[in-house]
């Protein structure tokens, strides 16, 4: 596809610790097209943040990308040096983080930090960069940007700091904005504003967003595609409608059952997913979800399922889609297996 911006293939990221290898990401593949808002969901430790850091080339020692490829507009990112990667970071691919309270340097003004990024990636001189910074603060909805630009982070509220972070991230019109739980630390009322702002700016700048979250409510509001991760692997990839209408993986099903949905409808008990995520130091050989899966079969424990293609936009890694598997209500079975990349 010509409008594919990011093509991640069989990405593996491993941390080589004293205790052994921690395989945080174990061979995941996905694409981001222009205009996409891709949600990556999963619980803590499922590898979603490490995936993001791998794309940014910011996986710290003792971890590193140990396999697979990350193609950004045709350029292989995993082969670049740190200095070469700096030409992409903040310019082509930028990132905002969970905690806006600690993500800005407390000893420099908002303007200083913003102008620094602008001048790093453009040829603008000091005054032009200053004007651009004010324009950016205006774009992200900070009132009186001419005054606010001289403020320090502690003079901003949480929501404003996240806006400032977004201003910094979009300052060079990146192709991809990676947002790692951007609203988790914010008030619910501010959350919606920030999400709106991100999507609006994405459309304005013709870029794409990778939104990492554990909040399926957020996903349903802003994403068009979703990757469900568990134990460092992709469980299900789908368009947002497919995912919510007909989830094709028991883990996704569990996630959907464990969030409060109809506020006005009948009172239903939330169903938790029993058990805990797998220890990635000694990852199970089979499907990582099998110990907690209500439908687990013999093969699930022995061997991870291939990714079954269910439609153009929908695939799931679960043996239940095999034509020989017992029929479970709502789950589709397919004739042929897709290749497990």
């Amino acid at each position: 596809m010509s409008n594919t911006i990011l093509d991640v293939k069989n990405l593996r990221t491993t941390f080589y610790t004293h205790m052994g290898e921690v395989q945080a990401v174990r061979g995941i593949s996905f694409e981001v097209n222009q205009g996409d808002v891709l949600g990556i969901v999963g619980e803590s430790g499922s590898g979603k943040s490490v995936t993001a850091m791998s794309i940014m080339g910011l996986v710290d020692e003792p971890g590193r990308v140990s396999g697979g490829s990350i193609l950004f507009m045709g350029q292989e990112l995993t082969k670049l040096s740190d200095a070469e990667m700096n030409e992409y970071r903040g310019k082509e691919i930028s990132m905002i983080f969970q905690d806006p309270m600690t993500s800005l340097n407390p000893v420099y003004t908002i303007g200083n930090q913003l102008i620094e990024v602008i001048r790093r990636h453009t040829d603008l001189d000091k005054d032009q960069a200053h004007a651009r910074a004010i324009e950016l603060l205006q774009m992200v909805g900070i009132p009186e940007p001419e005054i606010r630009i001289k403020n320090y982070p502690h003079q901003f509220s949480g929501g404003m700091r996240q806006r400032a972070m977004i201003a910094m991230a979009i300052s060079c019109s990146p192709k991809i904005l990676i947002a790692d739980e951007p609203t988790t630390a914010l008030d619910v009322t501010i959350q919606a504003q920030i999400l709106d702002l991100m999507v609006r700016l994405k459309n304005q700048l013709h870029s794409s967003i990778i939104l990492i979250t554990h909040d399926l409510g957020v996903v349903s509001e802003v994403c068009n595609k979703v990757n469900v991760m568990y134990g460092g692997m992709l469980m299900e990839k789908a368009s947002v409608f497919e995912l919510f209408d007909s989830p094709q993986h028991p883990y996704t099903l569990g996630l959907l059952k464990s969030i409060p949905r109809d506020v006005t409808g009948e009172r239903k008990r939330l169903v938790p997913i029993e058990g805990t995520p797998p220890d990635l130091l000694k990852p199970p050989s089979g499907c990582p979800f099998s110990p907690r899966c209500p439908y687990a079969m013999g093969i699930c424990v022995r061997e991870a399922a291939p990714l079954y293609t269910l439609s153009d936009t929908h695939s799931a890694s679960c043996w239940l889609h095999h034509k020989g598997a017992p029929v479970v209500e709502g789950f589709v079975q397919v004739e042929e297996e897709s290749v497990h990349e």
Partner: peptide
């Protein structure tokens, strides 16, 4: 600290 990660994510030199 997080702000160091931010600075690196913005492509600033080491």
């Amino acid at each position: 600290q997080d702000y160091i990660r931010t600075a690196r994510a913005n492509g600033l030199s080491r």
